[in-house]
Nucleic acid binder design. Structure first.
Lengths: 174, 174
DNA sequence: GTGGTTTCTGGATCGCGTCCAACAATACGC
DNA sequence: GCGTATTGTTGGACGCGATCCAGAAACCAC
């Protein structure tokens, strides 16, 4: 119910203009309860992607040494496969029309960086030099988020994310 | 005085454990005065870089069409030339020792994204496809921030940033 | 001095996020 | 049935960043 109420309000008034108190009021629960289910307001929108990023981090840090590019390709493909964050797509769609500034862009950049860091760490563990690893990682992170944005804008009958991220990995030199 | 007090406290207690009230107390002014000189707490640390990013955005959006890679190289070089953000280097140095997590990393990722967006917009204006522009932009943004981190960790007798960002641009395919 | 501009100040207000003690509801053992 | 854990919910207090504003203070020119 909380997620639904949040989605409705995000669409009605936008993400930033919706306070946690607004959400809980509409959902009919107390403010405290909100934080029993979400760690933050951003978690409502980004929780789905964050789980996948955690899985990516785990996969890349546990994978055996060697073949870093292959591990990264596989991890990113896994992240993209079956990606269905309805709430993120809605929020993104509603925001990109007005320039996608403010809080949502901040949050997006954090996810970009998290993916980038996971990739860069994996590359460095395989002997890549630091600057090069960070550049490639950032390229992948930025590309994945860009793919998600494009995908979210594609409307309800959107194709799979997989094709987009494959192209992104090509651009990033993987 | 505010910047000095902030620097001291950041080094003593770390960035996150220092509140705006702490800073103004040490500086002997009221909390309101702080926001007359800085738009946010992060501005104390990132203001110097932010100014350069604004200049980069202006330069890239006003430059004549064509030759995007050259404009980008020049803009990034300008950003790096004579870069001396004492306070950022200190905060970064103090933070990277403990993993560089939390607020500072958030703020860093925002700057990564701003640089990346500026670069990507310039490329798209020259006809680059969206995904490719975003990937290259993110690579540049991530690389510049990585270069700054490396540079900050290099100690007081650090070399110029210019050499580092040139290598980064090479990795990014520019 | 006087008048006007700039700066500083305190306080109110808002939102996010954390913490905790009290309370209700449910499930479980007997 | 009953007492008892366990779990979920609640309100409230708190700290923090940030915005806004009216009034006080400092400054400068004349």
């Amino acid at each position: 119910m909380l997620a639904e109420a949040a989605c409705e309000l995000f669409l009605e008034n936008g993400y930033e203009s919706t306070s946690v108190a607004d959400i809980t009021r509409r959902a009919g629960v107390s403010r405290s309860t909100f934080f029993n289910y979400f760690s933050s307001k951003a978690d409502v929108v980004w929780g789905g992607l964050d789980e996948r990023i955690v899985a990516l981090e785990a996969r890349l840090s546990e994978a055996p040494p060697g073949d870093a590019p292959e591990h990264i390709r596989a991890g990113i493909a896994e992240l993209a496969a079956g990606f269905v964050p309805d709430t993120l797509a809605l929020a993104l769609l509603h925001a990109t029309t007005m320039g996608f500034a403010g809080e949502l862009e901040r949050e997006a950049s954090v996810r970009r960086a998290r993916i980038g860091r996971a990739v860069a760490q994996r590359m460095r563990r395989d002997g890549a030099e630091r600057l090069r690893a960070d550049v490639v990682g950032a390229a992948v992170g930025g590309g994945v988020l860009a793919a998600i944005e494009v995908w979210a804008q594609a409307g309800p009958d959107r194709p799979d994310l997989t094709g987009l991220v494959e192209r992104v990995l090509g651009f990033a030199g993987l």
